[in-house]
Design a protein around this nucleic acid. Structure first.
Lengths: 343, 343
DNA sequence: CTGAAAGCGCTAACAT
DNA sequence: ATGTTAGCGCTTTCAG
């Protein structure tokens, strides 16, 4: 358990100066092949590992891109992180991840912590932040990307979409399919701002169609997952109110709702339609498959990476990228024609 | 977009020395309340953010704990990361994450990259590594924890369990329930070493019971998820071979298999039993619920954190922690009595 | 192609 | 309670 060896020790072992060792580890530098090999051997011998921290301090490039997501357990965000990481790896950069737990104050704490690592850029989920967090981001001097949302007053670049608009398209689909008594199932509060936007989009669309948006079912505090979806669906059914369709904040909640129907012997979509949001793998595999909106989670990350690489390596100022266009995927759970058995 | 201000600038603005500013940011230091407030004001004014990188270089404590996982999209590993992060946050440390993509060579590259950030400890998933990766870890001079496995020749500490043994318990359960023609559904290769261990445990247990382990269904390369499970189940059913039960490498694969049965009108567990591994939320919500093994994914991370905190803060040498004891959770998918309708 | 000196932003150790 | 000096491991800059 020795301390990690430094360039100095490698230099001594190889009989050269530290500077020469430093050069040997950079592809471009001018070094004779003989010395480079000698140094490589010495480094391997000692188990030397290049110290990216010290290097970063000197050249003022940490190689980090920071990102905040609400939760690591949500595969939508995991996909975005995956897209970002993969694309960024090609340019030798690493993602430094933090979880806000759907809490805007926690996000502020997190942003401060992440900025302390001197990332070259920062990607955040959502467009709503504390005043202090906004100031931190604005004053950070690095490119900022807000994702999964379309903030009215963006800080830097945006790779996102309107959650409200996307939900309006979903309601349109349900109305077109003949549904009138449509419920919304999701978190009640505003902690999950994307969830709140979807709820708002739902209410607006219902109003637009002259329908009552009185069936707003509270599934509790985020994260809203399958269990919460099932419970909330149970509560709705227990209430005895008439419903033809349920619009859920995510596919996870929708799947939970679906299983609750199955447990009670209700047929989806024949007795009731259920739709989700997010295009999780689950919704494309379960029986019946779940109608959803695909926000291109992985692409959000990939495009954020592309944008940042342009800013960082090609010196372009923050491009305003084309917005993401979520796609409505009509599947069995809302389509009696394709769905289960006829009544 | 100014450069991030430094302590020096804060010091000038507050009319004190850098050292005093440095002290003002540490809880313990002896500083008069007046100066501390003055400095705090100056720092806020300038939008100063403490540079953890430079501090780490000087005190030789990065505040990072590195971790490698096969994939961020698998909620089992996400849970372990969650447990680790949360517990570590209390001690002011941050998790630096990397994804191996189930590739041992990628893991080696990753470990080198992570060690370059000078983490105070490193947690890896699994016990199988390239020779070079082992050397890197052994020579790193920091605590190493291997998880999700019980390596025969551990590098440092281990917080894990035997995947083979856990699977044997599952086979025992199926045999007790009267099953004889039991298939295994999982990845075919060795890229996913935990998957390979589970398959081996399956084969051993079958042999032990005097049963043929001839139904090994290849679900392709990892990650094996719902879709792969569904396809593999389809292939098994198409083959026309008799099967009473299917043992899957994970709940995700098991759920895929389950849906394939539903699509073909087969009743689970009446016509066929299906069991999984991992205790994913999904398996406890779907209809029927899926019998599984709970490896306490989150606890693995939490206990790794506890162990590391002991090593790092209390100077204890690498404790050999008690092994994780996976729990068999018998649910509807393998229990005709509790399961669906009677035949 | 190689080396010596200086310094990135911070703090331990020693003054005062 | 506060300041000064030196240096963490690396690289930029300037010499050779």
């Amino acid at each position: 358990m020795a301390k990690a060896p430094t360039m100095k020790e490698v230099a001594k072992a190889a009989g050269v100066s530290v500077m020469t060792v430093s050069r040997a580890f950079r592809a471009d530098a001018s070094i004779s092949t003989a010395t480079r090999e000698k140094i490589q051997r010495a480094a391997d011998e000692l188990g030397y590992v290049f110290d990216a921290t010290a290097s970063g301090l000197r050249v003022k490039k940490s190689g980090f891109v920071a990102m905040t997501i609400p939760s690591i357990s949500n595969s939508n965000f995991a996909d975005t992180v995956g897209g970002l990481s993969e694309r960024l790896a090609a340019s030798g950069r690493q993602v430094l991840l933090g979880y806000t737990n759907y809490d805007i104050d926690e996000e502020e704490r997190l942003i401060r912590q992440l900025l302390g690592r001197r990332p070259e850029a920062i990607v955040v989920t959502g467009g709503q932040h504390t005043e202090a967090a906004r100031k931190l981001l604005q004053g950070s001097g690095i490119p900022v990307v807000e994702t999964w949302d379309l903030p009215t007053d963006p800080i830097g670049s945006v790779i996102g979409f309107s959650n409200a608009k996307a939900m309006e398209a979903m309601v349109q689909h349900l109305v077109d399919a003949g549904h009138r008594r449509i419920a919304y199932l999701g978190g009640d509060g505003n902690a999950d701002t994307r969830g709140a936007d979807r709820r708002r989009g739902f209410a607006d669309a219902m109003a637009h169609h002259g329908l009552a948006a009185d069936l707003l079912i509270d599934a509790g505090l985020p994260p809203i997952s399958m269990r919460e979806g099932a419970h909330a669906m149970g509560a709705l059914l227990d209430s005895g109110r008439t419903v033809d369709a349920v619009c859920c904040v995510s596919d996870l909640a929708a799947f939970g709702a679906l299983t609750e129907c199955q447990r009670r012997g209700l047929k989806v979509p024949d007795d009731i339609s259920i739709v989700g949001f997010g295009a999780y793998e689950l919704g494309d595999i379960c029986v019946p498959t779940i109608t959803t909106i695909d926000p291109a989670a992985r692409e959000i990350g990939a495009r954020a990476a592309d944008l940042l690489i342009k800013c960082l390596d090609e010196g372009q100022s923050e491009t305003s990228a084309a917005p993401i266009t979520p796609k409505l995927l009509i599947r069995q759970s809302s389509d009696a024609a394709k769905g289960g058995q006829k009544k």
